[in-house]
Design a protein around this nucleic acid. Structure first.
Lengths: 193, 193, 193, 193
DNA sequence: GATGAATGAGTGTTCATTCAT
DNA sequence: TATGAATGAACACTCATTCAT
């Protein structure tokens, strides 16, 4: 990569970084592109040189984060097949980026169809991982016969609920940390024979 | 109430009715106050005579609906103490106003603190009702010893999740209807001894 | 009309007047709506209260002027049936609003289809008047047998050409005045037996 | 010319070619320089290495074309001195590049003074050719005594009118072809004794 | 000579709120 | 009490031109 390309990459990352920071602090929907540019330390127009429109920036921002997250999860599942350990690590990963996931949970229902579908597709990949592990557990007679998709919606729905209303559950600190054990307990209760 | 007050009341109700209709169709956040006024058949300025600002209108709108809903729930609980029957009826009530609750679930996380707190307070009253019934069940050795608040968050969180992402779960028709049985099944599983 | 309506009408006219002035000075296409509002002495947003968008303002502006003009022409044609006298008066009328017609000739080809069609429809009404008078003259054996539409296109085309390139034909003053006689002479030559 | 100069010349021609294509398709005024560069297959900045600004590019583009055209006309006039034959050929030449001349007629009135003057100077050379032929015809008593400049303005004005409003006269195909005969007929009528 | 990333002023349009009528 | 015209800051996006590489 020559200096030109490197510089471009840096600018692009400055935009993503600024956008992520704002996304976490107050959400992207109600943030002007001019503000993002200002925080990134670039001209307003420059933003549109790197992203054709605001939506594309949001997609990129979310994609980058969610792929990182997804890779971590895959790794996680290779290491163990104990649902409670996986779930424990999963919650730790969310907690590490809780600001991000909290914003995502809040804004997701308001995204345009295409964008929402994209994000939910990533989530469905994650569900897939969990699904397989639980399925194996059922075959091995560790867990009860259960409608796995419904059980997972309970799990993801609950986590989503905590995240989206985070500021109502905790004044500061992490919601996920606070309810970490309860989430695991209840979910394991659902799986129990 | 004299004639003037009566007239004022009528106008106020026209606004609330119009706002509710729009709230259900497309949410209030992305609706201009001018549109609400137009649908209500009043002048734009009149709206601000009855509500100091847009937020106050939203508060009022939600309060009216949620109180109605809450009253129904209270009634419900007096009639039976079977959690599955209560839950069944509870889901029916939500389904009857699914457009409303779907919009609420989508918009709630984006409301300003005060408004969100108000709404969640109403929800907490509902939790209270469920809490008592479950507690009694535990005492009577029908249900297992469990952290009731956490279990309820699973319940409300899941319902909220279905509602807020309704359009991703069903193309038309009711999400709650579609997942009615699963919700009850999983929740009863949580309570089971 | 009450005071409210009167005030609204005044504002509307302020916008039209400002728009017309700018239209004459430099054309509307390359003028920002903000500049029109500023010249009109109103807030930028107010402009869009009176016209849903810039195009609608242009349409209104042109319609008002062209209807005035058209009415004058109708009157003219009732008074005489001598083509040279009618043409003489026609050119006087254009000259009286030469700035306007010069801008119109310059911008017309660049308008969007619908708007251009609207304007050209007004012009076609004018052609109609001329057509009838010439036709009568031919029947009365005063003018030669000729393809009237083509002859009129020569007339309107030429006037349009002078107007659209006005600043290339005269440094100041009126183009139409300068070429008044030549236009009539050549056109009468076309009609001559 | 060394290799470097040759390369420069090639790039310059790529730009002109691309610009001409766009000029014909949709006019230059409403086309971004970036698009021209893209079509030319060069970097955006390179364009400004060859032309100090957008206007200079337009000047060059038009100059190249108009000189070609002018040379054709000169040739034409050497071959015959019948005005109707010259005019016939002249219209054929315009028709062969009708897209170009239509764009020119539409945009010309909106060019800045200097540019417009330059273009009109080329046109005046053409007028000169016609002028001489007609003058000779008058001396030879073939045509009537007439104000030649005015007559020519009728001719050029009319052609310009057809070209600038081309899309209003024909949906597809050539305006000039459609009105070819009428233009000649009327113009010959003007010259007739 | 060629590149292409960066600039920043400018565009038409929206909308919660105010206030004279 | 009701009206609705007016406000003006805010928005996403464009584009001719510059300049470090």
């Amino acid at each position: 990569m020559n200096k030109r390309q490197a510089q471009k990459q840096i600018t692009r990352e400055k935009i993503i970084t600024a956008a992520k920071q704002i996304f976490i602090e107050k959400g992207i929907i109600n943030t002007a592109t001019a503000q993002i540019a200002e925080l990134a330390g670039i001209a307003h127009g420059t933003l549109f040189l790197h992203f054709p429109n605001k939506d594309a920036l949001v997609i990129e921002l979310l994609d980058v984060e969610l792929i990182k997250f997804s890779d971590n999860i895959k790794q996680l599942i290779l290491e163990t097949s104990d649902i409670d350990k996986i779930l424990d690590q999963y919650l730790n990963l969310i907690q590490a980026e809780e600001g991000f996931f909290s914003s995502l949970a809040r804004e997701l229902p308001n995204y345009k169809d295409e964008l929402r579908r994209k994000i939910l597709f990533r989530e469905s990949l994650m569900r897939e991982h969990f699904h397989q592990v639980i399925e194996k557990g059922i075959e091995q007679n560790i867990y009860t016969q259960i409608d796995i998709p419904s059980a997972l919606t309970f799990l993801f729905g609950t986590i989503n609920y905590y995240l989206s209303l985070k500021s109502s559950f905790v004044h500061q600190g992490s919601v996920i940390e606070k309810f970490h054990e309860q989430i695991i307990d209840i979910f394991m209760k659902i799986l129990k024979k």
